[in-house]
Design a protein around this nucleic acid. Structure first.
Lengths: 219, 219
DNA sequence: GCTCCTCCTAATGTCGACATTCGGACAAGT
DNA sequence: ACTTGTCCGAATGTCGACATTAGGAGGAGC
């Protein structure tokens, strides 16, 4: 069984605010006032403060001394930073996962890819595909058994999601065709022993997404 | 001129506590009670809370729900995690720095290495060498011009320092001889255009330090 | 002797009030 | 016209009091 996670109000608050940002309820540049959020969420300012600190750590918002916190804007620079950093850590994650993943974990990865395939065929929303994409990589990181690496991923994950959502909103959702095959290949490589190839593919898998997005973001 | 940094009490508090941990004032496993620290530092519990959250983010302490926060123990596992992750991001940092560093920044790196050489010759304390080592890498990351990468380094830096300090305390300070040459080589590679070699050397520079430490930590 | 239950204590989690800081508006001086 | 100084509103930074929780000591039941 999985451990029950005990969190405080600030954790819940962070989730709500994060969702609102990813929803598009809070557009980039929006000022997130502590008192306002505290009133809306029905918690104290302290909890909101902690939540905002978490989100800043995730790169979703930025705060300045005595000037409040605003939702981060997705510029080409941000996208490049997020994806280059992600590509780098994904390289380590996949290498470790290949060494340490149990057969059960690999099977679960297969399962996620299958669900992706079904989603693509049945013409599901892009957002659903995105969730599966994230889940896939979550599992890879978990299989790597590297606490700090997982934390690094958690710190990046929301930004990755925001970048991908931005891309979807821009209409260029053209990754439907590739997504299944790319992930399928990753699982196969994780299963095998071709370490070098895996590291390269894992890195390129991420960098490919980056170039697609930065191209879209550039005017 | 450099921007004046405006921070609150929690920033100062975090610095004090961090120093105390790196000093050895708070040994691994020590419980850090909020009220106690608040009284000692002369600030409110809120500020201490924020400070501890920062330190947790840096990996120096760990906290559990309603059970307080304790200083992280430096186990071989922790050392391995810290150094593998560091090696990975250092790879990206050095590649970027090679592309983006200005001549002035490269000259400053030379300067740091020179100071290292002087410190080694004059038989300075290991702790001083360590500070220069950290400063060197700080500058490399800054030269990479990648905000998120810098943040990832800041999150790791204290842990790196803690690991190195642990090593010094164990008596195996044998890196005096290598430290200058290794960094000298890194600067030369940053200056040149041999990207692949640079990435490899930068990674090995870190992984070498890791194997040395994990060997020491293992009983 | 073992388990389970109940209390108790010491710590963290949460809250709203007060202090500080920022940026802009407005007026005075050069 | 431009700069400089002052004030003001609104937000964050800081604080100590109160609520909640975890874990242990102690006793009752079996």
């Amino acid at each position: 069984m999985k451990k029950v996670e005990r969190r405080g109000l600030s954790g819940d608050a962070a989730d709500r605010i994060r969702d609102a940002i990813l929803d598009g309820t809070f557009l980039p540049g929006t000022a997130l006032r502590e008192v306002e959020l505290a009133a809306t969420l029905g918690v104290s300012r302290g909890a909101v403060r902690e939540a905002l600190a978490s989100l800043e750590h995730e790169g979703l918002v930025q705060s300045e001394w005595h000037r409040g916190t605003r939702v981060t804007d997705v510029t080409p620079e941000v996208a490049e930073e997020v994806y280059t950093l992600r590509a780098t850590i994904e390289r380590l994650a996949s290498t470790l996962a290949a060494q340490r993943a149990t057969p059960a974990e690999l099977a679960e990865l297969d399962d996620v890819v299958d669900r992706m395939a079904i989603a693509v065929e049945s013409g599901a929303e892009a957002v659903e595909l995105l969730a599966l994409d994230i889940e896939f990589h979550d599992r890879v990181y978990r299989a790597a058994r590297h606490r700090r690496l997982c934390e690094a991923w958690l710190a990046l994950r929301s930004s990755v999601r925001l970048c991908q959502l931005t891309r979807i909103r821009l209409g260029r959702a053209g990754y439907r065709g590739l997504v299944v095959d790319e992930h399928r290949e990753l699982v196969e490589l994780l299963r095998g022993t071709a370490e070098k190839r895996l590291a390269r593919v894992a890195e390129e898998h991420v960098l490919g997404a980056m170039t697609a997005l930065t191209k879209d973001l550039a005017p």
